[in-house]
């Protein structure tokens, strides 16, 4: 049953991800991406990472995608008819990158299918809860947490400066 739900959500996510990169209108891509993010929140719930699933909906599907929508509407973008077309300037480089990546991933799949990595039957009781994540965040990972806050501050100031000054 769990496997069935996994396959359904995974197929949903893959189809929507394909729609994101094939859609002609940027708004259509953004809406497909929001739906994909919600599907991924379902995957995270299957993985029992409830806190990350909530963050996925709040931060990704909420904040980041609203930012994308805002910029698309601000720039008033038209559909690009040549959207799905090879970029002839660096086709060779693209093909090379794709082949290399496919090779690496093929190797990984080959290794991971040699034996069955079944997940543990019972996870620890507080796995993925807000309490467990918060405790880890404010004890073992307090320095990365503070660095992340500085990163967000710098990004905020940087976005303001970039959007205000004119490029020549």
């Amino acid at each position: 049953m769990e496997l069935l739900i996994f396959y359904a959500i995974a197929a949903f996510c893959i189809v929507l991800a394909l729609l994101v990169i094939t859609n002609k209108s940027p708004i259509g891509s953004a809406i497909c991406l929001i739906a994909m993010m919600l599907g991924l929140a379902g995957i995270f719930i299957l993985q029992r990472a409830h806190f990350i699933a909530i963050l996925q909906i709040l931060v990704y599907a909420g904040a980041i995608m609203v930012l994308f929508m805002f910029v698309i509407m601000l720039l008033n973008l038209k559909n690009d008819d040549k959207g799905w077309k090879l970029r002839e300037k660096n086709t060779l480089l693209s093909v090379l990158t794709g082949v290399l990546l496919a090779g690496v991933l093929f190797k990984i799949v080959k290794i991971t299918t040699q034996s069955v990595f079944s997940l543990p039957k019972t996870l620890s009781e507080d796995f993925g809860t807000v309490a467990a994540i918060g405790k880890a965040l404010f004890t073992d990972f307090v320095l990365p947490f503070e660095v992340a806050s500085i990163l967000l501050l710098v990004a905020m100031v940087g976005a303001l400066v970039l959007a205000k000054t004119k490029v020549n």
Partner: peptide, 20 residues
């Protein structure tokens, strides 16, 4: 999903779709 993302970055010309 990662390969779909790489395809999008390499094949699309629209900067916002590349970001997505």
């Amino acid at each position: 999903l990662f390969i779909i993302g790489v395809l999008g970055v390499l094949l699309r010309r629209n900067a916002i779709v590349v970001f997505m």
